Amino acid sequence: MVSGRNACYTGWTIEYAGYLMAEHHSHASNKNFVCVDGDAEAANCSSGDSEDGALLYVVESSCNPLKCPPYVSGCELTCAVCSYKE
C-alpha cells in the first residue's frame, strides 16, 4: 500500500486506488490504516440483526507532521494498492 498517492511507483502495477481510512482518532486501537477502494460497493446484508463493527473514517492530512505543500491541511488522503512481479 502506498499512502498519500493514487498511483504506483514505476515498475509496479496498480490493483486499486482509494482513500486511506482508520478508526476514529479517539479510539484506543486506532493504529491500523487501510486503503479502501474508491469504487467499493456495499455488500447485501441478509439478516436484520445489527452488524455494528469497527467504523472507518477517512484520514485527513495535517501540516504537522506532514509537509505542506504537497499536502493540504484538512484534505482526505488517497492511497494505492500496488503489486510487483519480477
Rank of each mutant, 00 (worst) to 15 (best):
G4P: 08
R5C: 06
N44L: 14
C82F: 05
D52F: 14
G4Y: 05
P69D: 01
T13L: 08
T13Y: 03
L56R: 11
Y9C: 02
E41P: 01
P65W: 04
K67S: 08
A22W: 00
C35F: 06
V34M: 13
V2G: 06
T13R: 13
M21V: 14
V72H: 05
H24I: 03
V81R: 11
E15Y: 01
D37L: 02
A28M: 06
S50N: 13
C82A: 11
M21Y: 00
D39S: 15
K31R: 14
A54P: 04
G74C: 09
H25D: 09
V2M: 02
S61G: 13
H27C: 05
V36I: 15
H25M: 04
V81N: 12
C82Q: 11
A40R: 06
V58A: 15
G38M: 03
S73I: 07
V36R: 07
N32I: 04
S29Y: 11
V72S: 04
N30M: 02
V72P: 01
Y9D: 10
C68K: 03
R5I: 00
K85D: 12
P70R: 04
E86G: 12
D49E: 10
Y57K: 07
D52P: 00
Y19Q: 10
A42H: 06
A22V: 00
A28S: 12
Y71M: 05
C63P: 10
L20P: 00
G4H: 07
A40K: 03
K85P: 03
A40G: 01
E76A: 15
Y16S: 08
A40T: 12
S46E: 13
A7K: 10
K67N: 07
N64I: 08
A80F: 03
G48A: 05
A54Y: 05
